[in-house]
Amino acid sequence: MSSENIPGAAPSLSRLVQELNRLPGIGPKSAQRLAYYIIRLPDDEAYALADAVTSVKQNIVFCADCQNLTDASPCPICADPRRDRSILCVVEDPLDVLAMERTRSYRGLYHVLHGVISPINGIGPDQLRLKELFNRLAEPELTELVVATNPTLEGEATAMYIRRHQSREDLRITHLARGLPVGGSLEYSDETTLTRAFQGRQEL
């Protein structure tokens, strides 16, 4: 959307529409609907939204250990003495930490790469938090590294790069199981997924 005012709209409203239009997945029409919704909000709710945006930009930092986004470094997970420090789970982005925490089945630590190696998009190892990861692997209490990048071509390439470049021979390196999703269908599964699901079959 251009930086010009929207015909018939107040300049401040045009500005809000233009800023909302910058958000991913928000087109010009959606931006207009959201802007008019915000105008109709009670003052306290609109100011709370503005305050939340300001606050997140002022307060969010990278955790010095796991590189996740946090209000204070180290983040609550890294600072929690009840977490298992012998296992480290590598994920692509902060949303993956939220997904893993929802399972309540993992009690170890995380490391967030903030992306994956994507040669076509010009993203190489230096653009990710890999140096910080390799520094953490020297911690003697660490015994297992779980590489939980997405099972995509670029996710797998990133996992292979990590495997290739870590230097501890005594470190167990695993990745998450590949196979059929709950609610999925054999008929529509691709051959790689089915092959790996078959290889990972378990006793009933």
Partner: peptide, 27 residues
Amino acid sequence: EVVESFAALKEDLTAISKGLYLSELVD
């Protein structure tokens, strides 16, 4: 429906990076 998956290629980092080079050129 997958016709050819190049599964062995996708288990080798060097082969993947070469395949992506081909992709970029064909694109």
